[in-house]
Design a protein around this nucleic acid. Structure first.
Lengths: 186, 186
DNA sequence: TTGGTTACTTACTTATTAGTAAGTATATTT
DNA sequence: AAATATACTTACTAATAAGTAAGTAACCAA
């Protein structure tokens, strides 16, 4: 694959996760990469194409991570911690996650990008509910609530804690992430 | 105060909470209200003024709600439930909250709007940490974590659950909100 | 009755946006 | 050697954005 294409996608993702979908333009990318905006249209005819591709790549990355964890035989705690580490890294890089940055712009997205964002969110929530269920069966996790609701609450906490630490940067995010998992312990 | 001014602010808030700050324009407001865009500039010289005014009004509304709850002698459970009801209402209206809609756009906001958004978030988190602390002292709430972190986690769950239910609308939000408070019980 | 204030409209500017059509240099294939 | 595909640039268009200067109609006070 083209290296320019990859650079466009990488920078596009960074822009979505720092400024938001509706605040970034092809000019932001072209000036940063030292190319013309028509070059971006060559790879991604419309902004819709770029947005959709970025979400698809994120889905792929997530699925690769799942395969990787599975092949290493990670238990449910290890899997949850690996997922949370993505958010700690995002926080360090001062970026939101894709779901948290595109979610609020959902109504302004085109249909294909919406579809992929829905798919990504469903995949994450399904996986999270699954490991919560399995982890509870194996007596690794302890909680009373329905695993699906619990999954939404945990995922919500992760998504929005990135948004809140952006607003108030003195927040001690490591303890926040610990609080999220705290009530899964006996 | 002018009724047109109030209509502009109300519609502006709705637009921020449905489309996001960077996706709405003065034209959206002017065409909806049947006025010219210059009329909006008459009341709010720049978009910055409008955004800041909207956040300030939200802060005021929140503080009035606190006073109201205090004068009625609400205990900590009643206060928390009243706050959660705001989110249930937002969900019903298919709107995000101000913090959840402006947070992701934080880097693109002007300084005064940023300042007010920070102030609003701090006020909410401080109040939430306070009632968590008092409620635990009075043995109404039961939790081990630091109240400040717990406040961030609860608030994050509320903020992002609105975003997630927008993406996946089959989510059973009533149970989600119940899950949030579930682990405050003994 | 004159002067000022309020609440706008008219008509505009400047900047930026996504997007396109046509051209070009380089490399690859036939 | 000729044709073709790749990876762009040049040069533009049409739409929309925020913002402004000047005008106007209605009302209110001195």
């Amino acid at each position: 694959m083209s290296i320019t294409r990859e650079k466009i996608m990488e920078l596009g993702e960074t822009l979505i996760r720092t400024k938001g979908y509706n605040a970034f333009s092809y000019q932001d990318i072209s000036s940063e990469l030292g190319i013309k905006n028509a070059a971006i249209h060559y790879y991604f005819p419309s902004k819709e194409n770029l947005g959709t591709s970025i979400v698809r790549t994120n889905i792929q990355r997530f699925e690769e991570m799942l395969e990787n964890m599975h092949s290493r035989g990670f238990d449910e705690w290890q899997q949850l911690e690996t997922f949370i580490k993505i958010y700690i890294k995002s926080h360090r890089e001062q970026k939101l996650c894709i779901v948290g940055s595109l979610g609020p712009d959902f109504n302004t997205l085109n249909e294909t990008t919406k579809t992929e964002l829905v798919r990504m969110t469903e995949i994450i929530l399904k996986w999270l509910a699954d490991i919560l269920t399995k982890g509870r069966d194996k007596k690794l996790f302890f909680f009373k609530e329905d695993p699906q609701n619990k999954a939404v609450v945990i995922f919500s906490s992760l998504v929005a804690s990135l948004q809140l630490t952006r607003i108030i940067d003195r927040l001690d995010y490591k303890n926040i992430y610990q609080s999220i998992t705290e009530n899964l312990k006996p």
